[in-house]
């Protein structure tokens, strides 16, 4: 018995190692800032904060109000989000899947880190609308948080430590178990025939999606004007650079779990994947800053359906149910 078991364990070990090496090449190492290392206690604290409505001015909203696990941490069903006291925002809440790997944050890419990004929703008047020092005082009055923070941070509760803990939790939101990932790992049956055809279109010159939606997370992290409208009511990148040619440029979003996150685009103006594909097939609207890559594609109905099948194969249902990411008990 023993002699039989040992080799099979070795085999499993070798297989696991193989998968791990493969996974590492495919998914780059999780980027973690030196001054905010991941620890289990910090991640749990961040998770608690992410789901706690006391982080908003009137205790009505938490991060999870607009970034919901069942929708891959997007605000599906809402073109734009609604903040405290019913204040409507002007943008669509993106999925937080694999958010650790993003090179910049917000639709115009103005924030360099998850730590600093979190300041945005906490303080924005149309999101959680809380003054940093009010929040710090509020948390300091909660013994549970006093204890949890002092275990993780020598300085205890500060604004920076609130954002560090939340960022640590966000870094754990890894989505890599879609049908496409299984297909890539060698399970040829994981994707339908139509989805495989769609994949070829996606990564080929006829669909041309990969020029912007490339890599393991389906984004090159670059900003483009995709001719969503004829004008650019939301300035996008130009809000930061003040350059007219940057008006209407937005960060390329990930397409992982995209079937769960409708409506689409920075303003939530496209309701379905079918409509999104129509937009690309048409080459977008005639916008002065529209990207050179945007042009009529001449895709047939079947090809469009195949592309949609492929996008659906990027759904990671396990991610939306993973108990590690859900509201803490």
């Amino acid at each position: 018995m023993q002699t039989f078991l040992l080799p099979s364990r070795v085999i499993i070990g070798v297989l696991l190692l193989g998968v791990m090496v493969f996974a590492q090449v495919y998914f780059p190492v999780l980027p973690v800032p030196k001054d905010n290392p991941q620890t289990p206690e910090k991640i749990q604290l961040g998770r608690k904060l992410f789901y706690d409505t006391r982080l908003s001015a009137d205790d009505s909203l938490s991060c999870s109000s607009c970034h919901q696990q069942q929708f891959a941490f997007s605000n599906a069903g809402n073109a734009v989000s609604t903040g405290i006291r019913g204040q409507k925002g002007s943008r669509n809440a993106p999925s937080l899947g694999n958010v650790a790997w993003r090179k910049s944050y917000f639709w115009e890419g103005g924030s360099p880190s998850l730590e600093l990004q979190a300041m945005g929703p906490l303080t924005a008047h149309d999101e959680m609308a809380i003054e940093p020092r009010v929040l710090v005082a509020k948390l300091q009055a909660i013994p549970e948080y006093q204890k949890a923070f002092s275990r993780v941070f020598p300085e205890g509760i500060t604004m920076l430590n609130v954002t560090k803990a939340i960022a640590s939790f966000e870094r754990t939101l890894v989505t890599n178990r879609s049908a496409y990932d299984k297909y890539r790992a060698g399970d040829e049956k994981a994707m339908s025939v139509a989805a495989v055809r769609g994949m070829e279109l996606f990564f080929g010159e006829s669909g041309d999606c990969f020029h912007c939606h490339n890599g393991f997370n389906f984004t090159t992290e670059t900003l483009h004007n995709t001719g969503l409208k004829k004008t650019n009511p939301d300035l996008g990148l130009a809000r930061i650079t003040n350059r007219p040619e940057d008006a209407g440029k937005f960060k390329t979003p990930t397409l992982r779990n995209v079937a769960l996150t409708a409506p689409y685009m920075h303003d939530g103006s496209i309701a379905t994947l079918e409509k999104a594909l129509e937009h690309y097939n048409k080459g977008g609207e005639d916008n002065p800053n529209v990207d050179m890559l945007m042009r009529p594609l001449g895709l047939s109905k079947t090809e469009i359906n195949d592309l949609i099948e492929f996008l659906k194969a990027l759904t990671d249902v396990e991610f939306t149910r993973d108990p590690r990411f859900s509201a803490p008990k």
């Binding site: 001054d35 924030s111 600093l116 979190a118 300041m119 003054e131």
Partner: peptide, 19 residues
């Protein structure tokens, strides 16, 4: 995230979407 008041995050003047 590395500077002191009055420029620290507690100032309430940090603009998260814009460096």
């Amino acid at each position: 995230s590395t500077v002191a008041m009055p420029l620290g995050l507690e100032s309430g003047m940090f603009w998260a979407w814009n460096p």
